[in-house]
Each structure stands twice: as C-alpha cells, then as structure tokens.
Computed example of a mutant assay.
Amino acid sequence: MTTIATPHGPFSVLVDSQGTVLASGWTTDLDSLLALVHPTLRDDVGGDAAVALAAVDAYYAGDSSAPARVPVRQHSGEFRMHAWDVLRRVAPGAPVTYTEFAALADRPAATRAAAGACAMNAAALFVPCHRVVRSDGTLGGFRYGLDIKQALLEIERTRAA
C-alpha cells in the first residue's frame, strides 16, 4: 500500500504486480482496503503504485480524467463488473442518478443493483462512484464520507464549467 497526502486527507492505493489498481480510498488503514479486494486477487497485491499515485496527483492538480486512464481490476458478478466499467465512462462534472446509472449499465429496472455496484466499488476515484447521486439530487452514500463526495463533485463541476 502506498499513501499520499491530498486536500481531502491521506489517499491510499493497493495495486497488483502490474501496477493495476485493486483498491483505493481516503484511508491509511491497509486492512480496510485489503478487505475490499476480491479474495482471488489478494495474492497479487504489492506492485509499484507510481502510475496510480501520479494520476491522483494529476486529478488534484486539475486533470479530472487522469484516474480513468489507470487500469483497474476488480472481481464480482457479471452485472457489477459491467457497472464498474460503465462508471469509468461517467464524465467529470456530469453526475448521474442511480436510475440513470442503471440505464447506462443496460439494466434500467436495476436501480438497487446499480447502487450496490457503487457501494461495493473498491477503487474509489479510479472508478468514480462519487459521480452517482440520488434522483432528488442529494448525495446518497459514499464509503469515505459525504463531505469528500461533495467536494469531489464540486471540484469537477467547477472544472467542467
């Protein structure tokens, strides 16, 4: 695990032997991040996180799309894995509702499953689940706190304007 300072606190990344992000978030708790990594991927934790950390730095320096250019590897069921790929295509500054996210993931009636994909996302920022909000515009949940989710959305909204 490698940790860097960000304006929203320490940000840690776990990568595999190829530098692919397995888990990330605003924490220094290795055990909490490792618990998010699918058991079949845990044996490969421990590569060089330089590319991932450079993307986090670039994000905070003004390039909201930088994390989307870093490979991510998560494992789950077919819908959830597809939903995580879809999340990576949600543009900075253009958040979607959980209902819209479900439709983008080709399952318009699966709003709860779409919300579950956000909740189970291990690779915060790299898979931008913070870009999904409730249909009434309120934030919903976020593993690292609503203050960080709101700040990220505001950063991206300001940059996109």
Rank of each mutant, 00 (worst) to 15 (best):
M1A: 09
M1R: 11
T3P: 01
I4D: 01
A5Q: 13
T6Y: 12
P7H: 10
V13W: 06
L14I: 12
L14G: 06
V15P: 02
Q18V: 01
G19L: 05
V21N: 03
V21L: 07
L22F: 11
A23H: 06
G25C: 07
G25I: 03
G25V: 04
W26N: 03
T27A: 09
L34A: 14
H38D: 14
P39D: 07
P39I: 02
L41M: 00
D44C: 04
V45G: 05
G47Y: 05
A49M: 06
A49C: 06
A50D: 02
V51Y: 11
V51R: 07
A52V: 08
L53E: 14
A54R: 15
A54K: 15
A55E: 02
A58Y: 08
A58M: 11
G62F: 10
S65R: 13
A66C: 05
P67C: 11
R69Y: 12
R69G: 05
P71C: 13
P71W: 14
P71I: 13
P71F: 14
V72G: 01
R73L: 13
R73I: 04
E78C: 01
E78H: 06
E78D: 07
E78N: 02
H82S: 08
V86I: 10
R88A: 01
V90Y: 11
A91E: 15
P92E: 15
A94N: 15
A94R: 15
A94F: 15
V96L: 13
Y98E: 08
Y98H: 14
T99N: 08
A103P: 10
A105R: 12
D106T: 03
P108T: 00
A110N: 03
A110D: 00
T111E: 14
R112L: 15
A113T: 01
A114E: 05
C118V: 14
M120V: 00
M120T: 05
A122F: 02
A122G: 14
A122C: 12
A122R: 01
L125Q: 09
V127S: 02
P128S: 06
C129Q: 07
C129V: 05
H130L: 00
R134P: 00
D136I: 04
D136Y: 15
D136V: 01
G137N: 13
G141S: 09
G141E: 11
G141T: 12
F142K: 02
R143M: 04
R143N: 08
D147A: 13
K149Y: 08
Q150C: 11
Q150F: 14
L152I: 04
L152G: 02
L153A: 04
E156P: 04
E156V: 02
T158H: 13
R159G: 09
A160V: 05
A161N: 03
